[in-house]
Amino acid sequence: MIQDVNHPIIETHQLRRRYGRGEAAMDGLAGVDLTIRRGELVALMGPSGSGKSTLMQILGLLDRPTSGSYYLDGTDVSRLTTAEQAELRGRRLGFVFQGIYLLPRLNAIRNVELPMVYARFPASERKHRAADSLSRVGLAELANRRPNQLSGGQAQRVAIARAVAPGPDLLLADEPTGALDRASGREVLSLFQHLNDDMGLTIVVVTHDPLVGRHARRIVELEDGHVISDNIVNEAERIVADHPLEVVK
């Protein structure tokens, strides 16, 4: 994975997102400047209503900012058409959500293939990458299961396999452990660390779970639509991914 290190993968200036109109209007984001470089593992933290999910949706091109600019890998994405944004979502971005966001009528491997169907990958490459990706999250044997035949942790790992299968530059996760028990949650987090360490994938995780925060290399805290702190986590304070239990206890 050869990467251009000249510009950051994410760069925002005075990003605003306003919901509603007139008196009832409120700012989801009230001017956020954020720069994320390649290979970072960043946690966006803050209480609910702080704007962290809104920020992630804008970073993921799932929503448009009311004002401000957003450069994704050097491109001003607010100028792109919806079709171009869709193309970027499919090829360059991967998403993992809270809860199960697999399509219930497709089995695991079909779900993993889906973004590559939309990105018009050739069928053979699609199948190859999907199988690869599923085995990377340790679920090669469950490829033909439907989502309702998977545990919550397994389903979330399928979702991660789906997010990384097309080879994205950026993985965006919104409360990925929110609906999981602690053991499954830790599995997901160590998977993230593995993807970040070994494959250099840039990951942005939205969470209010301190455990997730402690897996990150950088923690950005939001409150009321503003960034209130942005800290690089000291290597000594970080949980070593392979032994998370020792620190928690």
Binding site: A86, G90, Y101, L103, P115, Y118
Partner: peptide, 10 residues
């Protein structure tokens, strides 16, 4: 929403 997040065009 899922399909669009995964890159489905309008």
């Amino acid at each position: 929403g899922i399909r669009k997040a995964l890159g489905a065009r309008d």
